[in-house]
Write a protein that binds this DNA or RNA. Structure first.
Lengths: 142, 142
DNA sequence: TATTGTTATACTCTATAACTATA
DNA sequence: TATAGTTATAGAGTATAACAATA
C-alpha cells in the first residue's frame, strides 16, 4: 500500500490533461464536444441501445437521449427501431459519422505521433507495456 | 515522422480516460466539477488575476468570471481587489478551499496508488521518466 | 409490475458581444 | 484608445422526476 511518488502522480495527470486537451481541441475543430467524440468512438464497433450507450458514457439515459437528438440532427448517427422490442431502438453511425470518425482518428494519431517522437522505438514498446498493465488493472467496473 | 503503434495510442488514451474519470468522480463526490477541481489545483500556488486564470484554464474571461462567482458563493475562493489597479482583482483560495484541495489531493493519490500497485518500484521509476519526457515535449504553448 | 425510452425542468458551463470602470 | 472585469444572452450538456408505450 505504498503511495506512488508525487512525481509519478504528477506526470500521469499532466499527461492525461495533455491528451484530453488534444482531443478537446481536435473535436472542437470539427464542432464536436468531447462526449460526442467518445460517442463516435463507441459506435465504431457497436450499435447499442440507449441504456447500453448511457452505461458506456456514464450518463443518465435522459442525457444520452438529448446527446443522440443533437448528433442525429447533425446527421452523424441514426436511431434504428428494434424489431423484437417495440419500445427499444439502437443507435448506429451514419456514413457521414463514420467518415468524420475516421478523419478524427487520423488527426489524433498524427498529433500523438509528434508528441511520442521524443521516445525511441524500444522506449515506446516499454511504455506501451507499462501503461497497458496499469489500464488493465483499471478495467471496467462492469 | 513514423506514426506510433495503435497499441500505444490506444493505451495512452485509455489511461487518460481512466485518470480523468477518477478525477471527475472524486470531484463529484465533493460536488465539484472537473474545472472547479482544476481551479483549486491552480490556486494552490498562485493568486492570479481573472485574465491569467482564464488563460490557465483555457477559458474566456467571461467564463472564469462565472466560475469564480460560483466558487466564491461556496466559500472556496475570494476576489481580492488590487491596490495598484482599481480595475483589477486577483483570485485567492480561502482556508476552506485549501482544506478541500488538500483532501482531494490525498484521495487522488490514494486511488492512483491502488492502480499503480501493479508495477514494481523500478518499473514506476521507468514509467515516471518516460512520461515526464513526453509531457515535457507538450509544454505550454505559451 | 417492470423496462425502454422521451419529455419537462433546472442548473452548470461555455462562448460572443456589449458594457462599465479605470488606465 | 486600450485593458480588466462583469453582464446579457444563448446553447450544450447534465441530472431528477414524471411520463408514455410496450413487455
Amino acid at each position: 500500500m505504498s503511495k506512488p511518488s508525487p512525481a509519478l502522480v504528477d506526470a500521469l495527470f499532466r499527461l492525461s490533461f495533455v491528451l484530453q486537451g488534444h482531443l478537446v481541441r481536435l473535436a472542437a475543430a470539427h464542432d464536436l464536444s468531447l462526449v460526442q467524440l467518445r460517442l463516435l468512438g463507441i459506435l465504431r464497433d457497436r450499435e447499442p441501445g440507449m441504456l447500453e450507450l448511457a452505461r458506456h458514457l456514464e450518463l443518465e439515459k435522459s442525457s444520452s437521449s438529448g446527446l443522440i437528438d443533437r448528433a442525429e440532427a447533425r446527421g452523424l448517427v441514426e436511431r434504428v427501431p428494434s424489431k423484437e422490442d417495440r419500445r427499444a431502438a439502437t443507435v448506429r453511425m451514419t456514413a457521414r459519422g463514420r467518415k468524420l470518425a475516421r478523419a478524427l482518428e487520423d488527426e489524433v494519431s498524427r498529433e500523438l505521433g509528434a508528441l511520442l517522437a521524443v521516445l525511441s522505438e524500444p522506449e515506446r514498446v516499454k511504455l506501451t507495456a507499462l501503461v497497458e498493465r496499469v489500464v488493465e488493472r483499471a478495467k471496467p467496473p462492469a
